[in-house]
Design a protein around this nucleic acid. Structure first.
Lengths: 346, 346
DNA sequence: CTGAAAGCGCTTACAG
DNA sequence: CTGAAAGCGCTTACAG
């Protein structure tokens, strides 16, 4: 590697519209070849003669040329961009998985556009629109898709990938698991541990509702009375624990275990319970969801439901790779399952 | 609003390279106007006659047209894209601030490209290169800039904004505060509270080192012996607490307060201390950094250093707006300061 | 292995 | 208020 050219920015230059950045043509002129050859060298070096390549390399170095991906993508009608839509940066169940995916995408030469949808459907629609406007190769979404999204995506060549969901009829493809089954498994697990009065903390999201549904159904099928419940806003964060714990303390029939929608909230409940002098799990069990890194690091460690983020990331990458090669996807729904991990808190 | 056109995606269509998405020309033909007029309608509706506009609107609706931003940006040589470079998604000190910025940018019509730099400088360089290749209007970086970045940015028209940093000679502009001063203030504060033996937990990052430096200098200037120290990997996360606490327990002269590089780590230390039967702050004080939402929600609440993320986001937005209007920036360095917030943990 | 030329889908002076 | 035409900076058959 050669030393980079001397930094010439010293205050006044930055932001001034002085001389435009060098183009492919500038490089070609400098290297005394056609711009087509420079383009070939950039995209497929092997096809260019050794010494021609050397001249071009030198010209690039000299001019400080950085290809204009806007023009390149337009001409080749592909973008090597992927959009990722998540609800929040903070307190997100998906961060581990997303971070892994972003890392792999970057490594495989894709740029990642991240959109924060919040909880508003409108914002999701407009982010999908923005992604399609940039002709991204794929959109990865952690949320449900609206009809508007469906129709926009259908007319495009963009691959739409839903993760952590497994809808009946995905817009594009879906990689996830059954939240209802997860709810059922949790119910069976708690019953097997001898718990009698679970308290559910659910957010008003389709996924949380599906888990709750599964839990209710199974719990009652096992011959128990319906569990009590607290409703919280999305995202299901640490800070909600105070109110939820207060809810519990007010009840006549005290719950013996709290089922949380995230490990962050579970962590908060443990903190609240301990601050009130309760022992976890002896006086109160606490169950998380998502198997965030903290769940193995908390005192006590948190029993949680693990979803294989690495597997999801792999499946997403594979689907995108196939799509970029122009192949059709292999299956529309991939069930990656989940796994209840018993630790100390239950 | 009209109902969206019926969703026509049912499995086979998605991903097939069937009919290409509609272009401006298709809309123009449908509306019986020139493509220039459609373009005007899209970018500056006021300039088009009422009924012409209506026809165009109908044509857009009918065709399901979504503008190709690649072509638009290339032709107009502006992108309305901003790149944001952060080290991690999870356990980041910046998430609150970044989330706020992303929200505001999206609202003001900018798309956001997020890059995860990790701790590698190479990865930062290549992400900057990718951002420049897409001709983003601005790059917002939470890390230090290398010489390579400096020279790439200098040749471009992209505004480079460093946040949470205040280097001598910023590449573009910097919006931050003095980490060394923060370290000094923490030292003075702990001294005023009567602490005698602080233990510092520092990561091997320039920022953490600057704070440590400030702390050391001030602490010794106040007539104390140098504090003890633990080194941790970046990011300064919850999970590091176990080892750090073990470090402390092994010491002959037990520290009476731990100074953490993040609120997450502080939270972890409180959990560890309590699990070991210590009371915080009576037996051990714990101080965080960054004033994350959790610091006010933990038991005990965490004394921390607040950096005004909303202010930074505002300054960033203002700088980008000026830059997009072609104006020069007002100042190269903006010191937003910081504020020590005393809570229960110290 | 290399070049000339058309084309990707927009925007924007320039006329009218 | 609208249209014809040049141009943004690349890529990619098509020739040679």
């Amino acid at each position: 590697m050669t030393k980079p050219p001397p930094a010439s920015s010293n205050g006044t230059e930055q932001g001034s519209s002085a001389n435009r950045p060098p183009t492919l043509t500038d490089v070609a002129r400098e290297a005394k070849v056609s711009s087509a050859t420079v383009s070939r060298f950039l995209n497929n070096p092997g096809v260019v003669a050794e010494e021609t390549g050397a001249r071009i390399r030198a010209a690039i170095e000299l001019t400080g040329y950085i290809p204009n991906a806007l023009a390149g993508d337009l001409a080749s009608s592909k973008s090597r961009m992927v959009a990722v839509l998540i609800p929040h940066l903070e307190h997100s169940l998906f961060n581990d998985m997303i971070e892994r995916m972003v890392g792999e995408m970057t490594a495989s030469g894709n740029n990642v556009m991240i959109g924060l949808t919040g909880t508003s459907r409108d914002r999701t629609d407009s982010l999908v629109r923005a992604a399609l406007a940039r002709r991204v190769d794929a959109i990865i979404s952690t949320g449900p898709a609206s009809e508007a999204v469906d129709s926009m995506v259908a007319r495009s060549r963009t691959l739409f990938i839903q993760v952590w969901e497994l809808p009946e009829e995905p817009v594009g493809i879906a990689i996830g698991f059954s939240h209802e089954d997860a709810g059922r498994d949790i119910a069976r697990f708690l019953a097997s541990r001898g718990y009698q009065r679970p308290h559910l903390v659910t957010a008003d999201s389709p996924r949380a509702q599906a888990r709750k549904q599964g839990f209710f159904t199974e719990w009652q099928a096992l011959g128990h009375a319906p569990p009590s419940e607290s409703i919280v806003d999305m995202p299901t964060r640490f800070g909600h624990a105070r109110r939820v714990f207060a809810d519990i303390r007010r009840m006549d029939e005290r719950p013996d275990v709290v089922v949380c929608g995230s490990d962050h909230l579970a962590q908060g409940l443990i903190v609240e319970a301990q601050a009130a002098g309760l022992r976890v799990p002896d006086d109160l069990g606490v169950l998380g969801f998502g198997n965030n890194a903290i769940s193995g690091e908390m005192r006590p460690t948190i029993t949680s439901v693990d979803v294989d983020g690495a597997r999801i990331a792999r499946e997403v990458m594979a689907a995108i790779a196939r799509h970029q090669e122009g192949k059709d996807f292999l299956s529309r729904k991939i069930d990656v399952g989940f796994r209840l991990i018993a630790r100390e808190s239950v």
